[in-house]
Amino acid sequence: MTVYLIPNLTKPQAAPTAAAAVDVLCAQGARVILPADVPPEPFAGRQVSFLEETCAFSSCDAIVTIGGDGTILHAARRGIGFHKPLLGINIGRMGFLATVEAYELDKLARLVRGDYRIDERTLLQVNVYGANTFRQYALNDVVISKPGLNQTIEVSITCDGIPVNQFMGDGVVVATPTGSTAYALSAGGPVLDARIAGIVMCPLCAHSMHSPPMVFSAQRKLCVRVAGRGVAGALVSCDGWAPERIAFGDTVEVSLSERSVSLVSFSEADQFEAIDKKLKGR
């Protein structure tokens, strides 16, 4: 097996954890690839290769990240077209998507042996039409928000062409079941089983008594349009990436993509174990 190991070196624990992970993987006979921009010093004396991103994604059999949920989301986004199994090792605060903690590196032996299951997670496809036209994908969520702290925007939402909500507020978050435990949860949305194919829509600070979160089936297509007075459009961000600016009247079309992300799992109930261990009591 060839493993593409992606450590988030902005975290102090990342380099020593990555070196320890390399030792476990190599002991099981795996070949380890690291990103070309990773400093080689922490891996001196170890059998590793350093490759550019595209070559690494195409050459590997599995991807392992070391960091937090942001590192997993980054790797998922960059590797969408390659559809390789993705495993996260958590050294962050929450690590909700990670199925291995830093003290559980022995589980990497199970990865090499093939002793794991694949948890297919749905992606959102986000198409923006207007002055700034683009397409992006999101494993967690897409956020359409106001551009400034002292401003509000008017949000209009349709489902398959039928109006379902209109309100003034800070914006709206549209999430996958995977993302229902992230920003959408903070916005008052429900937690969905990650194996459900659906879409969650949560208004952000709606100035309204009649704008509850809503859950839509997998076949639905949501369209969000924004308007306002005296402000310069809105911002669109997928999975927390740098936002794109859109103009008033532009349309953000959100639906479930035919693409998915394959998360490595060692349990039938990883999501609910994470809820029990990492969300309860917070």
Rank of each mutant, 00 (worst) to 15 (best):
S237W: 11
N165P: 12
A20N: 06
I246M: 14
F167S: 09
T10D: 10
S58N: 13
D23I: 13
G189V: 02
I6P: 00
P35N: 03
F50P: 03
F82M: 09
T158E: 13
V236H: 09
V174C: 04
G189P: 01
V173Y: 00
Y103T: 11
P7H: 05
M94V: 15
L222E: 07
C223F: 07
S217L: 08
S49I: 01
V24H: 05
Q151F: 06
A184D: 02
L149G: 09
V38N: 00
I91A: 00
L139F: 09
R282M: 08
A138I: 08
Q28T: 14
L86D: 04
R117E: 13
L256W: 06
I199A: 02
D69H: 11
R135F: 12
E253Y: 11
C159E: 14
R117L: 14
V112I: 13
N150F: 15
V236T: 13
G233P: 14
N90I: 07
A197N: 07
K107V: 08
L73T: 06
V172F: 04
N150V: 15
V112G: 03
V226H: 02
P177W: 07
A44E: 08
N90R: 03
R121T: 07
S265L: 11
D23W: 10
T178V: 12
A21K: 00
L5M: 02
V215F: 07
P35S: 05
F96D: 03
T176P: 03
V264S: 03
V200D: 01
K107R: 13
V174Y: 06
A131E: 09
L111G: 02
E104L: 08
Q219V: 07
D61L: 09
S180E: 09
A36Q: 14
L111M: 05
A131C: 10
P16H: 02
R229E: 15
V38W: 00
V236A: 10
G70I: 07
L86S: 05
D119I: 08
F57N: 03
A18D: 01
N8S: 01
V126M: 10
G249V: 11
T122P: 03
P85H: 05
T17R: 00
S267A: 14
G188A: 12
F50Y: 12
S58G: 12
D170A: 06
Q136W: 10
P40L: 05
G228A: 15
C60Q: 05
A194F: 12
A247M: 15
G70D: 04
R46W: 03
L51Y: 09
I199K: 03
R225L: 10
P12C: 09
N150D: 15
T71S: 08
C60S: 08
I162F: 07
D119T: 10
L235M: 14
R78W: 03
R259H: 10
D61C: 12
A269D: 15
R113L: 15
K221S: 07
R31N: 14
R259Y: 07
V100Y: 00
S59I: 01
F272K: 10
L5D: 00
V264K: 04
G67F: 03
P7F: 05
I199V: 10
D119R: 08
A274Y: 02
A187Y: 05
L263F: 14
I6S: 00
A19Y: 00
A75W: 02
M1L: 11
V22R: 00
L192C: 11
V231Q: 15
G70W: 04
H74V: 08
T176G: 06
A30G: 02
